[in-house]
Design a protein around this nucleic acid. Structure first.
Lengths: 151, 151
DNA sequence: CGTGAAAACGACTTATG
DNA sequence: CATAAGTCGTTTTCACG
């Protein structure tokens, strides 16, 4: 079952914009059978409703000098301490994503660094600032990432 | 150290486009102190060089009817079989990302579903089509995802 | 919510330093 | 590789159904 508050035309627009965030309203109109300004109104509404959270360019991190991707699982060392880990690590720029997860560990991070040494340094900073232990999984190869998933 | 093949202005452009993929060349110019057409040339070059891999809209999956996010670790059951797992699962639309990783398991997937039952069904399909065992970590909350990491 | 038209703005090309 | 100028397409707003 799909959310009835987002109907077919809006879903189509979301799908198209998810795969090409710079598609023009004119082209979106051709693809959906709507006029340019009808599409324009719908997109603005989707943005206001928060269904479109933003637009971004996908950057080639390897070519940019950040070839090392890793997942870092995090567990607080002292369970009696207030757990404000996400706040404490927010400003660490190497962290691309931060989730809280069910299971043995409390948080999962996705990080990008230039070298193994930079990863080592990063892990040290995370442990220090948040008083946590870490478990790291290195990414060997990325088949695909952030593929549009709309249904 | 940063990659000398991508210098400061290009990095700035990449950073700006990573956070706002629909920013106009005019505004990129104002933000970088370059003329519109200079920025235009640089962006086209960044696209051709593959440093910009594409543009996308960030979609609110919860509101779209896919509130459940999970990470699925994958291990082949029969190590003597050819390992074409990524090929076998490529057409499963619930899979947003697919990495091969170092460690006990061979692959890591990020998936989105509507319900726990849909996740159960998805895991069954993955195991069947790729002859693998799975270990699943449920995401409880997303603090942030795909934050621009450019240095 | 849709359309179509008009005005403002940005994209893209070409010529030039 | 940068800039300036001109054309063309897109965005945005508006009045209206």
């Amino acid at each position: 079952m799909t959310d009835s508050a987002v109907e077919s035309t809006d879903r189509k627009i979301l799908q198209l914009l998810a795969s090409d965030g710079r598609m023009s309203f004119t082209d979106l109109g051709k693809a959906t059978g709507l006029s340019t300004s009808a599409v324009h109104q719908r997109v603005k509404r989707l943005e206001q409703r928060g269904l479109i959270q933003g637009y971004g360019a996908t950057v080639n991190h390897a070519e940019l000098g950040l070839p090392l991707t890793a997942f870092v699982s995090i567990r607080p060392i002292d369970p009696s301490q207030p757990d404000d880990c996400p706040d404490r690590i927010r400003d660490i720029t190497e962290i691309e994503s931060c989730w809280s997860v069910a299971g043995t560990e409390a948080y999962l991070l996705k990080v990008r660094t230039a070298t193994p040494a930079a990863l080592e340094d990063l892990l040290g900073r995370i442990r220090n600032v948040a008083n946590v232990s870490t478990r790291t999984t290195i990414v060997l190869s990325t088949y695909y990432e952030n593929r549009p998933v709309t249904d």
